[in-house]
Computed example of a mutant assay.
Amino acid sequence: MSRHATLHVALDPDRVGELVGADVRVTRLRHKPGQYTVAALADATGPTGWLRLTPHQDRAARDAERAARVGRRVEVVEADGLVLVHGDLWTDPRLARVLHRAADLVDASVVVRHNPLRRLVLRRGTTQIRVTTKAQPDVHRLVPALAEESLAAAPRGRASSRVTRWEWVPGESLDAVSGRGDLGARRAGEIAGELLARLHQVPVPAGAHERLPQRAGWDDGGLRATARGLAEVDAELGARAAGLVDRLPAVPVGAPVLLHGDWSSDQLVVGEHGARMIDLDRAGSGPALRDLASYLAVEALRTGDPEGAGAAGLRTGYEEGGGSWPGDAAVRSASAAALLSRAKEPLRRANPTWRDGVGRTLGLAEELLR
């Protein structure tokens, strides 16, 4: 049996629907060659559950046991020489116990997003609930000045380090409104840059930088792991990615600042309140370059232009907001690294033409490194 047999089934929407017995689609997946593919499932109304495809009966049995421990059950089906396990969101193997312990909080919530084995985002009234398998940084406690700046959604409590409550910010994401009416890519970049500059200038108390999660400019080991992961499913794409990692120059990153950690136009909501950041569960301490490159990489993927109007707008807004631009060469290199870190996203999003998507991402990184 092919080491990617589970992946081939997960990428076939008709076969997934047949096996699950419902009109669902795969929205996100994680593939371990020869071991399993885990996927998030959704129907026309939104996220509904998860599945695991594996050749190993014992792994499927463990998933069933985990569900039973929290008083729930999963379905187990054998087909195509594989074992399929699937269940509702509350039986996600890595999140089930966390959700069970916070049942009074998550009950009757509306599901917003599900990343299998990683994260579940819910909404209950005017509160967003974020449930993760890893501890979320208590950034507002470590940096109390953040609350005074009104930059981001306000925290509303922590049931635990992995279950947090936040203000639900009304409005639309900057990503959704970019290009609509008078708000073009350049103006969107200016808004994102100005807000980011304000975040980077929030004073961090002495000693707090060390207690925040450390976010490097880029993680060379992580980028090489991404290249190896690509090589496992496509040797040519993996070699191409590895070659680009080899070409990344060393870049001075400067003093650490308070980082958003995953900055892009869909992490910013605009409305009557102005512009506010959301999703601070990846916040940390590190070079400003990391957040800038994160935004530019996502903008490049959205527009196909790594140094277009959005990039120019980001620099204008960042400098007008009081930020110090790191320098064009450093920004290009960091943006290339940020693109490489996202190289597997088309596959993770279960895109049937994921190879084309990966190739496009690598092409944008190549353009920046010329």
Results as ranks from 00 to 15, higher is better:
residue 125 G to I: 11
residue 86 H to L: 08
residue 277 M to E: 01
residue 262 D to C: 04
residue 216 A to L: 14
residue 226 T to D: 02
residue 169 V to Q: 09
residue 184 G to E: 07
residue 328 D to M: 00
residue 59 R to A: 12
residue 17 G to S: 13
residue 343 A to E: 11
residue 353 T to E: 15
residue 306 P to A: 11
residue 154 A to W: 06
residue 65 E to D: 15
residue 243 G to T: 10
residue 88 D to S: 12
residue 342 R to W: 06
residue 114 H to M: 11
residue 208 A to F: 11
residue 295 Y to T: 00
residue 269 V to F: 05
residue 256 P to S: 07
residue 126 T to F: 05
residue 96 A to P: 04
residue 200 H to I: 09
residue 312 A to K: 07
residue 260 H to D: 03
residue 38 V to G: 01
residue 242 A to L: 10
residue 295 Y to Q: 07
residue 23 D to N: 08
residue 141 R to Q: 14
residue 253 V to H: 01
residue 35 Q to Y: 05
residue 353 T to L: 13
residue 47 P to Y: 04
residue 14 D to W: 04
residue 97 R to F: 02
residue 167 E to K: 14
residue 357 G to A: 10
residue 246 D to C: 01
residue 282 R to G: 11
residue 309 A to L: 12
residue 194 E to V: 01
residue 24 V to K: 03
residue 168 W to F: 15
residue 220 D to G: 09
residue 2 S to Q: 10
residue 126 T to C: 02
residue 61 A to L: 11
residue 165 R to V: 07
residue 317 G to T: 03
residue 139 V to W: 13
residue 199 L to A: 13
residue 240 R to I: 05
residue 253 V to P: 00
residue 28 R to C: 03
residue 275 A to V: 08
residue 286 G to K: 10
residue 312 A to W: 00
residue 97 R to V: 11
residue 38 V to M: 09
residue 311 A to R: 07
residue 98 V to G: 02
residue 30 R to S: 13
residue 82 L to M: 11
residue 30 R to I: 08
residue 336 A to Y: 06
residue 34 G to Q: 10
residue 208 A to S: 15
residue 332 R to M: 02
residue 304 G to M: 03
residue 291 D to Q: 05
residue 25 R to A: 15
residue 291 D to Y: 06
residue 43 D to Q: 08
residue 271 G to I: 14
residue 217 G to K: 00
residue 47 P to K: 09
residue 10 A to W: 06
residue 366 E to H: 13
residue 85 V to R: 02
residue 114 H to L: 14
residue 356 D to H: 12
residue 146 L to M: 05
residue 4 H to R: 12
residue 20 V to C: 08
residue 166 W to L: 14
residue 247 R to T: 06
residue 56 H to D: 12
residue 36 Y to Q: 10
residue 113 R to D: 15
residue 141 R to W: 06
residue 355 R to H: 07
residue 50 W to A: 05
residue 85 V to N: 04
residue 317 G to W: 00
residue 74 V to Q: 11
residue 233 V to M: 08
residue 160 S to N: 06
residue 16 V to K: 09
residue 214 Q to H: 15
residue 75 E to Y: 02
residue 253 V to N: 00
residue 203 P to N: 01
residue 356 D to E: 14
residue 363 G to A: 06
residue 122 L to Q: 03
residue 327 G to Q: 05
residue 333 S to Q: 01
residue 11 L to Q: 02
residue 337 A to G: 10
residue 173 S to P: 06
residue 343 A to K: 13
residue 51 L to H: 04
residue 183 L to D: 09
residue 207 G to I: 09
residue 43 D to N: 14
residue 299 E to W: 04
residue 91 T to Q: 04
residue 348 R to T: 13
residue 239 A to T: 09
residue 205 P to Q: 07
residue 141 R to T: 15
residue 195 L to C: 02
residue 274 G to F: 12
residue 81 G to F: 08
residue 194 E to A: 15
residue 161 S to Q: 08
residue 29 L to M: 13
residue 310 G to M: 00
residue 335 S to E: 12
residue 16 V to T: 10
residue 65 E to G: 12
residue 313 G to I: 01
residue 228 R to I: 01
residue 89 L to R: 09
residue 50 W to Q: 04
residue 218 W to I: 03
residue 256 P to C: 08
residue 163 V to H: 03
residue 149 E to K: 07
residue 244 L to M: 05
residue 155 P to I: 12
residue 190 E to M: 14
